[in-house]
Design a protein around this nucleic acid. Structure first.
Lengths: 214, 214
DNA sequence: ACTTGAAAAGTACGAACGTTCGGTTTATAG
DNA sequence: CTATAAACCGAACGTTCGTACTTTTCAAGT
């Protein structure tokens, strides 16, 4: 993982240290947000000079973009990729929620994506664009799953998929908030319960008596 | 304690400009958060020198605390105080949600309190303590209203008041998020709908047939 | 071994940061 | 009107910021 100079190396030296820098910066961003990143504190954490770090990214903004990309890839890897192996609709949706909860619980500090959403929501530019693009994708996955669940008869036909995605996302935010702000260990249980309750009122009438879910 | 010498003025000169500074800083904080505040940009916005501004607060942190206090007072005034005039329980709870939605819609930019919650959740100190204290109070008001609604028979006895408050707060966060990040004008309607749906699954069985709410 | 190009360090810059201090203006009290 | 205290300003402090240039280190190709 370190230098690994000889021909057996997958990463060139430059790319390897670049990854190390991004990793260190990601850790910093989990407590201070993308705005908390500076070339100086990243360099100190990774054990390099400011100029050495700076050379890998043309600007601080590019460093922020690289860190954000790493954060979204981590999120996708932990939350989405395991979920798409499951059956479309409700099973997949349940997995997304569960993976998200465990992902947030596993983080020593805050979620860089949600932090960035707050930091940049009034600050136009490429970082904000990237954050928004990912949040839209996240939301659309929820809506798509809900829409499929309706079509498959897993959810009541009256369920509005957009509304369902909105309420799911609210649960995400509440779980994250209670974990971060209140350090509440019950947060995960509350999130699961909220999701179960959200589902319970969205179950088709035909399934209510015969097929009480889970 | 203050001078307050002349009978015609309610505020002494110092207190008046202090208020003006806090007001200007509050506007700045609505886009850049409490971390975005600097003695310099506040001074520029209020048309004073850095040292003039600084003299009113012993430190930047005290300025942040003053701004946070102004923000929480605004929130309480817009959301809570009108609501406590209503009957306890569900009517008051509905009013809190409605006032909160309109408060968020009225803000040109973000909510300082929620921003501060993200900025300081990993940064111990008096600012974080103050943010947390207000968030806890907000949550406990929701829980208290839910608890009373249960006791008054407005909600099903099986409803867990803490859980109910958690889900309410999730709706708050989702509304704010969609307003800020997505600039979604439907956000308010989605929030109202989510709250209605949350209530619908919490109505006592005895009321279900006779008294179908709205 | 020598060369070469990339990688990292070193140095320096102008600006902004929070803060301090001494002086000047302005309002208030006697 | 005068004395006094509060309010405010301007300049400067030591840091840190992002970024630009130059120099040194070092791994690889010949």
């Amino acid at each position: 993982m370190k230098t690994q100079t000889n021909q057996s190396s997958i990463l060139s030296k430059g790319a390897a240290t670049r990854d190390a820098i991004v990793l260190a910066a990601l850790k910093l961003a989990e407590t201070g947000g993308l705005e908390g990143l500076s070339i100086g504190n990243v360099a100190e954490r990774v054990g390099m000079s400011k100029s050495g770090v700076f050379a890998h990214f043309g600007s601080r903004e590019d460093l922020q973009l690289a860190v954000l990309k790493a954060a979204t890839e981590n999120f996708s890897e932990a939350v989405f990729y395991p979920a798409i192996k499951l059956k479309r609709g409700l099973p997949r949706l349940r997995a997304v929620l569960e993976n998200m909860i465990e992902f947030y619980q596993g983080l020593a500090n805050g979620c860089v994506i949600l932090s960035a959403s707050h930091e940049f929501d009034d600050q136009p530019g490429p970082v904000r664009d990237a954050v928004l693009a990912y949040l839209r994708q996240l939301r659309s996955e929820l809506v798509r799953a809900a829409r499929y669940a309706v079509e498959a008869g897993e959810l009541d036909p009256q369920v509005d998929a957009e509304q369902f995605g909105f309420e799911c996302f609210g649960i995400f935010l509440a779980v994250h908030h209670d974990l971060r702000a209140f350090r509440d260990p019950d947060s995960a249980a509350r999130g699961r319960s909220a999701f179960t309750r959200l589902l319970k009122r969205s179950i088709p009438v035909s399934n209510l008596l015969s097929n009480q879910s889970e």
